[in-house]
Write a protein that binds this DNA or RNA. Structure first.
Lengths: 334, 334
DNA sequence: ATTGGATCAGAGAGCGCTCTCTGACGGAGG
DNA sequence: CCTCCGTCAGAGAGCGCTCTCTGATCCAAT
């Protein structure tokens, strides 16, 4: 009962067949006499046989696993909202369904980055999902050039053409701002996200597009997706235009910060100032007042990433980018 | 430049030595002539040689990787607070330092559970970290019995004796309640966590211990660590004892829910009712008022888990459980 | 009766690596 | 001068598996 892991050979001996036959049964090949098949399965059961993946990988040249790389360390910004875990859950789900394994790598440090490149280009995984926050991350391109199947979460900023899954950021933002316009808001400001991230850029674009179609002028402050930056940006906006009557924040954390500043400045939300966020984090629903926001299907994104990388690894070809729809969730803040 | 991955043999040929020598150099063995060593390294560099881990694993019987298993699906309860990502960050950090890999497995479904058992007992990883929420999870014991090095996050409820890393839950809770006592609070209620989780049990124990030492009586409502359950529990407590002047919630999410109920009931925090939480999630610091809470070093826990499992896998022996200190963070709510 | 084809099991050659064992070499001791 | 030992490189045997190829068996068809 110790660590005497049975091998194919042992099972074959027990079932009175050859290694090859056991292998066929284990790998679900057809063309095996049902009787023999049964006796092999019995032997497998009795011996508690589990294939040695290393040996299998060695000969098949497959790893049956996929790397999920977070290109930046999941700092508070990231871990605070459920992005991190939702993506993981989604990817994980697909891996489980395909009986593949998930190797998680955080490529925060330069050393980590190098490690990721070494590991993934060495074909120890069948594919790589790069969940990069910054659209200009060189990693996806580097891997793709080396022939590693790679999928990005979020449209890469520089080198397009890579398969990726992105949110309808611009569209979602546009819809959010249109909602404010439709509600009769006249002075609609935005707290934009960092302009080196695709989400930041696209959501600002959406804001601008929506404003262009009405006759409002844009009032912009830039944050970095943290709550604190939302606080700072909101204060600045209030200084720039004390009469503003709506704010679209590029994410919920900043919206939450803005909410606090507005409250402390004596303004009522939504009566004096309407606020819309983006992401629909759990905290949005129990803010005071509950935050109107744009929901993005992060879990679904994870699943899509998983599906895509698996398809690619199986030799499939990459279609254009997959864009997941966002949805305006109207609560009380706007 | 395609996928012609060079093998040891190729490198050996190029350097004009044997496979064995290259292997020695690559694995950092001493006893290699510096000159030869240099020429081997040059060949490795030129060819971009990366060892095939599958082949190595096959012969060494090591996997150079560790599985991190989340025994329950990271539902909102879990993903909402930074537990999930902080543990991952911590473990990941240690893995990177040891040049090991991290295989993440979510064992939510029965199928997933079975998969985890199959995978880990097949020695495809050198060790397993089980991050289980429920102390009665059978997985750790099952693995340990099969001879797989296993470390638990959170003291297992049933089968003790397994190496684990836990928080000073009882101590932290006790300290929190003592703080309320010291502030002169007379009617100190608690919103306990679920009583099938170690954290829930231990924190309630801490509360009871602290109260026993003063002459207060205990007022208990049980939640399940979600914000919603905090709301429900707080309402119940208010019904049970409308004159209560303090609440210790077993986690921050429930404390946040309690805060809202108290506010809506017209009570001022901390003037009428003091509130203390547990965890120190980011949201605690920007609640209204900022939440006094017990901080637990989750990232540190991840690192400790990583260190422990690596030591165990390397043949080390498990000491008793590692208990990480918690710390009362006094803000404005109490 | 012989052949042809179809079906399915076995033999055997590796996959790329590690590691023990063997052997070559050189310097010190008898 | 020969031996002995220490140092270090090479030879070679696998690790456990897959997969191609060969071969056996059986039934239908010639």
């Amino acid at each position: 009962m110790t660590s005497a892991r049975p091998t194919l050979e042992k099972v074959a001996a027990r079932a009175g067949v050859s290694r090859a036959t056991v292998s066929r049964v284990v790998n679900g090949s057809t063309h095996v006499n049902p009787e023999i098949r049964a006796s092999v399965l019995r032997a497998v059961e009795e011996l508690g046989y589990v294939p040695n993946l290393a040996a299998r990988s060695l000969v098949t040249q497959r790893a049956d696993s996929v790397a999920l790389v977070f290109s930046e360390p999941p700092t508070r910004v990231f871990s605070d909202d459920p992005m991190f875990s939702d993506i993981i859950r989604g990817v994980s789900q697909e891996m489980e369904a395909a009986d593949k394994h998930l190797v998680l790598m955080l490529a925060g440090s330069p050393r980590g980055r190098e490690r990721v490149e070494r590991y993934t280009t060495a074909r120890h995984v069948d594919g790589v999902i790069v969940a990069s926050m910054h659209g200009a991350d060189p990693l996806p391109t580097a891997l793709a050039r080396r022939g590693v199947p790679v999928v990005c979460s979020g449209r890469p900023l520089v080198h397009a053409g890579l398969p990726c899954v992105d949110m309808e950021n611009a569209g979602g933002a546009e819809q959010a701002v249109r909602h404010l316009v439709a509600a009769g808001r006249r002075r609609i400001a935005t707290i934009a996200g960092p302009q080196d991230m695709v989400a930041g850029i696209d959501r600002l674009t959406g804001y601008r597009t929506a404003l262009r179609d009405s006759d409002r002028r844009s009032i912009v402050a830039v944050g970095d997706f943290t709550r604190e930056s939302g606080v700072v940006a909101m204060r600045q906006l209030l200084r720039d235009d004390p009469a503003l009557d709506a704010v679209f924040a590029a994410n919920d954390m900043m919206a939450l910060g803005a909410l606090q500043v507005l409250r402390r400045s004596g303004r009522r939300v939504p009566d004096d100032v309407a606020v819309v966020g983006f992401d629909d984090v759990p905290a949005a629903s129990y803010a005071e007042p509950p935050l109107t926001t744009v929901r993005q299907p992060v879990y679904e994104m994870g699943r899509e990433l998983g599906r895509l990388v698996l398809a690619l690894a199986a030799g499939g070809d990459a279609d254009g980018p997959v864009i997941l729809p966002t949805e305006l969730v109207v609560r009380e803040s706007a």
